[in-house]
Amino acid sequence: MYQAQYWVELQALKAHVCYLSLYQLKSEAYERWIGIILAVASSSSIAGWVIWQQYAFVWACFIAGSQVISVVYKFLPFKERIKPLRAAGIELGLLADEAERCWFDVAQGELTEKQINEKRFDIRKRKSAIMQSAFNGMVIPEDEPLMKKAEDHMRKYFKSHYPELSND
């Protein structure tokens, strides 16, 4: 029973590592696209104004919109999460590797049920400490499609590394 619980904890940790990585990539993509839009808006707005004087109102709206985006952009939460996502992802990845390394002893029956349970709760405690340290109370929203993708990555990982244990 405790072996199965450790295995589930290990899978959940790996899925969490995958989720943070995918969330980081998504946040960086948002930041990149907003930066591109703002750069294009500021670079082309003057040229566009000269070229299409008959659409002056459209260009004025475009410029005003880009100004609003540039002000609001500073307050968007994904930008603030990128650096902590990187740090937490690395730390949780190391924890996942350590937990996976310990899986051998768990699977081979080298540890008592009490020791397995202690290791499982140690993983949880360290995971919480890593998240608290990186995010300092900031909440990461759950993106359901991204979570499903992270779980798929986790299943593929364990299926390729532990085919005898993987459930299809």
Rank of each mutant, 00 (worst) to 15 (best):
R86F: 08
F78K: 02
F75H: 15
G89L: 04
L76D: 01
K79S: 10
A88R: 05
P77L: 15
L85H: 00
V68P: 01
P77Y: 15
L76I: 12
E91A: 09
S66N: 12
F75K: 15
I69R: 09
K83F: 09
R81A: 14
V68D: 05
R81L: 15
A64W: 07
E80R: 15
I82R: 05
I82Q: 05
G93Q: 03
F75P: 11
L92F: 00
Y73E: 11
K74D: 02
A88Q: 06
L94S: 12
A87E: 08
V71E: 07
G89F: 04
P77A: 15
F75C: 14
Y73D: 14
L92A: 00
E91F: 01
R86V: 04
K79R: 13
R86W: 04
R86C: 06
I69G: 02
I82G: 04
K74I: 07
A88K: 03
A87Q: 11
R81E: 12
V68A: 11
K74S: 08
Y73K: 13
A87W: 05
P84D: 04
F75M: 15
F78Y: 12
L94H: 13
Q67P: 00
I90P: 02
K83W: 10
K74N: 07
I90W: 03
P84H: 06
A87V: 14
S66D: 10
V71S: 08
E91R: 06
P84R: 03
G65T: 03
L76G: 02
R86G: 01
A87R: 09
L85R: 00
V72K: 14
Q67E: 02
Y73A: 11
L85I: 06
L94M: 12
L85W: 00
Y73Q: 13
G89P: 03
K79E: 05
V68W: 10
S70Y: 07
F78I: 09
V72G: 03
R81C: 10
L76T: 07
L94I: 12
R81N: 13
L92Q: 00
A87G: 07
A88I: 00
S70D: 08
